[in-house]
């Protein structure tokens, strides 16, 4: 067996072993302590509940995935645009960057009610809330990336009298791409969290149902097994979005292998 294949197999088996061990421990704990289903169902009961509500779960997951993916794309667009503006003016950077940090420090739970007043129980409100959560890693990373060009590269552009636009498009933006992808990877995890948290508030009365809304509903009905199944789906969504961004990143970064 080839070494990379063997290594991958070992990784998969290790991860699967931990999952199986946790499931067994979970099952045994429920049986040993005789816990009621309402408090902690067994893994099998969770799987059963998930299968019974599969249509609802898949539909809600699609909604949440759309919210997270659209928010991530919007955050990448706005964040990159802001970073480019910051890179062109030190004054703009000084004046506005603290507010980007401020956005990061404001808990989404605190601003969600305000967003609902301004934007209503709409899909767009969940997107706005998620964008706010995703924005900071993008702006922070892209701003760093736009300033990260090597001295020799900057000298080269200076030597041939490159314009600001040429330096931006031919040097700064390509240099910032690995930083953007790193920021996007961080934000992809945050996007699913943001979408679900936003749905806790926004889905209440909205005409669409995401995983956050399902979780709130099932919590109210004390359907713990279905709630845990929804939790599992949200984890899968997070992994899916992260893996997609990571895969795209690998394709883009294949040319960025360090050369000097």
């Amino acid at each position: 067996m080839k070494r990379p294949v063997r290594e991958s197999l070992i990784t998969i088996l290790s991860v699967a072993s931990v999952a199986v061990a946790v499931m067994v421990a979970w099952q045994l704990s429920v049986q040993f302590f005789d816990l009621p289903k309402i408090l902690l169902p067994t893994p099998w009961q969770v799987l059963e509940a998930g299968w019974q509500r599969r249509q609802e779960l898949v539909a809600a997951s699609l909604v949440t995935f759309m919210t997270a993916a659209i928010s991530l794309i919007v955050a990448i667009t706005i964040g990159s645009g802001l970073s480019i503006l910051f890179s062109q003016s030190r004054l703009l950077h000084r004046a506005f960057f603290p507010y980007v940090v401020f956005l990061q420090t404001v808990p989404i739970v605190a601003i969600a009610p305000l967003l609902i007043i301004w934007s209503g129980y709409e899909f767009r409100t969940a997107v706005i809330a998620t964008v706010i959560i995703c924005l900071f890693p993008i702006v922070n990373n892209v701003t760093t990336g736009l300033q990260a060009a090597r001295v020799e590269h900057r000298d080269l552009f200076h030597l041939y009298g490159a314009s600001r636009l040429q330096t931006l498009t031919r040097l700064q933006i390509p240099t910032a791409i690995p930083y953007l992808l790193l920021g996007a990877r961080i934000s992809s995890g945050l996007a699913v969290i943001g979408a679900i948290v936003a749905e806790f508030f926004v889905s209440n009365g909205a005409n669409y149902v995401g995983l956050g809304a399902l979780m709130t509903r099932w919590q109210g009905l004390l359907q713990t097994d279905a709630l845990i199944a929804a939790l599992g789906m949200s984890t899968l969504l997070g992994l899916l979005l992260f893996a997609s961004v990571d895969w795209l990143g690998r394709i883009f970064l294949s040319r960025y292998t360090r050369v000097d």
């Binding site: 090597r150 020799e152 590269h153 000298d155 080269l156 552009f157 041939y160 009298g161 490159a162 314009s163 040429q166 031919r170 040097l171 390509p174 791409i177 040319r255 960025y256 292998t257 360090r258 050369v259 000097d260």
Partner: peptide
């Protein structure tokens, strides 16, 4: 330069064309 300082996202011909592109803005 002491290091080749090539732009990793450009091919050989892309790197060699760079000074011409930058000068052509004139």
């Amino acid at each position: 330069f002491q290091q080749p300082a090539l732009l990793p996202w450009r091919s050989v011909v892309g790197n060699v064309m760079l000074p011409l592109e930058l000068l052509s803005r004139r």
